[in-house]
Write a protein that binds this DNA or RNA. Structure first.
Lengths: 369, 369
DNA sequence: AAACTGGATGAATCACCAC
DNA sequence: AGTGGTGATTCATCCAGTT
């Protein structure tokens, strides 16, 4: 792309503004092949039924906004295919799209992307370091969301800043799973009355990684579900042009104010994004799952006690069952016990502390970082 | 389910065998509602174009077997919907399914599951601790695969061993992202000539977590894409019955030999941490009947509320009377309240939760059994 | 001042049995 | 099948207020 092209585009495109209205209609008013990258965080169609309370009886503030309600999967699919069709038309031939969703909607979006001729490059998992737990103990903690990265078509020469991402990841190739905290604290935009300005504000760190990895300075980034404008804020800071589309006047107002305060190349703000990296916790159950220890196998202590391993990674001794720490403490009559050093397995007649197995797993995890 | 039902099922179902042939035809020959859990690892529809080479020019041994090739998304969808339809028919009403895939096929499977009436419970990310790097540096390291866990229909009472999974994870509830290594080393089955026996053999650890978490001893587990039989091997070790379906005689042979060598873990090892919900119900009135609490006695809460015990096992407070739960909820203005943990009696100046008395009764019931 | 404590909160498809 | 009663259930983080 020459400088001249960019100048012409800049004259006709509503750069660095928020378009008011429905995203399909607003995209329809844009010319063909004018956008380098699209980031889209559409309604998830959560289909929540009743209220949910935490064990302390406080009420969970659910996403029950009108914009997230659809009559059926069919209705949702029609909506999805309509906006993805317009999005593809306005993408440049070597442009790309990122979409984000949860299991409620992401499978439908992925299938639609493929059907419409997009070419999926990766799916990326945003592993939340601090998700909301499953309060009723009925399912796994819903601890991630899924992003899909796709080019406009097969064979397109999409932008991928491999070295920048590798540098961002301490010299190791960036993987398809990203550990990032959810948007809380000072980053979370509030109304004057102290409520959250938007129920699903995405963290700056997520957009930072997407835009650093998959766009260049001067690129045009479009977000058809702009909300409170995280995409615009990060694009501005990184020296990209942006176009937002948002229906809700309240969200637009918050986004305008927010982006107005952003300074270009504000490196200090971007450094906040790094996720903390502590020594990984290795549950004892992992050793059992991986077959390093067998259910039924006997562990022994230096004091001559013994217990047997169960399939769920608990131990069972005489009259007691529970974690390696609990059973160790009970057998010794002690208030607490470090099961990792207390318990040993027997190999070739030798007692080996189970902590040796934990070290092996930690070594693997470290290599995979 | 009674013992008799299980015996009848055992007589008609081809338990603990590998059925030879196409999975749709073989499932069609099974009766309605006969299976507790399905684990399915279908062809991924990978669509690899040419050969892939590492930086040192060695060739990557990719999945390019015939069974993994489909002419188009339409063909793949037809196949997917056909086998998922049969799978749903043979599932018991409270049964569930796990499917695994990558971005090539998982979006199509997820949408099909929803369209066919399955109810998605979680999507789970298998985060590989040792994935193959992206040799060309054109994309993110493809470091995960996606599993979908779904019940047969909305509202079904699926099996979820919450406490066992929590125990397996050092006392913290299990999340939707699982870090597990890929299947390598001694676990990876080889042919006589030393090649991989199957291109996509799944690790035992993955199936262990699925089966410990979502099935019970004695359940019937079906795997319609059996391959080298990881599902059968883990099911046998965990004391579950299994049915495999596999087209390829070579894979069947490897699987048979493999499963023949597996030993079932003993009964004590298969016992898993039990949920409190499984404990017998004790009416509060029993404590009064047995004289553990006296009619007229005052109970107190940690929040400073109080109420008095009546002879019929109800409480009476200011303006309210009813069960321990109802009075607690009313006094707190809460939607619900667990009276067992909310109310305390006073002994030697100390507040003691009435749940302690319930535990005494349960211990007696246990001893008398 | 630094450390500690209590409260709040986040895209959530979050019981089950007896009558 | 619908209703009502019992009673089981949470992790990481940030902030405000206190020691």
């Amino acid at each position: 792309m020459t400088k001249m092209d960019r100048m012409q585009g800049a004259q006709t495109l509503p750069l660095n503004t928020i378009l008011a209205g429905d995203c399909i209609e607003q995209m329809a008013a844009l010319p063909d092949a004018c956008v380098d990258l699209i980031f889209a965080d559409p309604p998830y169609n959560l289909q929540l039924k009743g209220e949910l309370h935490r064990p302390d009886n406080s009420r969970v503030d659910a996403v029950d906004d009108d914009w997230d309600r659809f009559a059926s999967f069919e209705t949702y699919d029609q909506f999805t295919r309509a906006w993805l069709t317009e999005a593809r038309r306005i993408l440049k031939p070597d442009g790309a799209i990122w979409v984000i969703g949860s299991y409620h909607n992401v499978f439908r979006m992925g299938a639609a992307l493929q059907d419409l001729g997009y070419w999926i490059l990766n799916d990326v998992v945003w592993r939340k370091s601090n998700p909301m737990p499953n309060f009723r103990g009925k399912r796994f903690t819903n601890a991630h969301e899924t992003l899909i990265w796709a080019s406009k078509s097969e064979g397109a020469r999409y932008t991928f800043n491999y070295e920048a991402l590798k540098a961002m990841n301490e010299g190791i190739q960036m993987r398809s799973d990203w550990v990032l905290p959810i948007c809380t604290g000072g980053e979370r935009l509030k109304t004057d009355s102290g409520e959250k300005a938007h129920p699903t504000q995405k963290p700056v760190s997520l957009l930072h990684r997407v835009l650093v990895g998959c766009s260049k300075p001067g690129d045009v980034i479009l977000d058809p579900f702009f909300g409170t404008g995280t995409t615009g804020a990060v694009a501005k800071a990184l020296g990209r042009d942006w176009i937002g589309i948002e229906r809700d006047p309240g969200y637009r107002e918050v986004a305008e104010a927010r982006i107005g305060k952003v300074r270009k190349f504000d490196k200090a703000a971007l450094e906040v994004t790094r996720a903390k990296r502590a020594e990984p916790r290795v549950p004892f159950g992992t050793l059992v799952e991986r077959g390093m220890l067998q259910p039924g196998e006997t562990l022994v202590s230096a004091t001559g006690k013994s217990a047997r391993v169960r399939a769920d990674g608990t131990l069972i001794g005489l009259d007691v069952s529970g974690s390696i720490h609990q059973v160790g403490a009970a057998l010794e009559g002690a208030p607490s016990c470090n099961g990792w050093t207390y318990w040993h397995f027997v190999k070739d007649g030798q007692r080996v502390p189970i902590d040796v197995l934990r070290q092996q797993i930690r070594a693997e995890m470290h290599a995979a970082r």
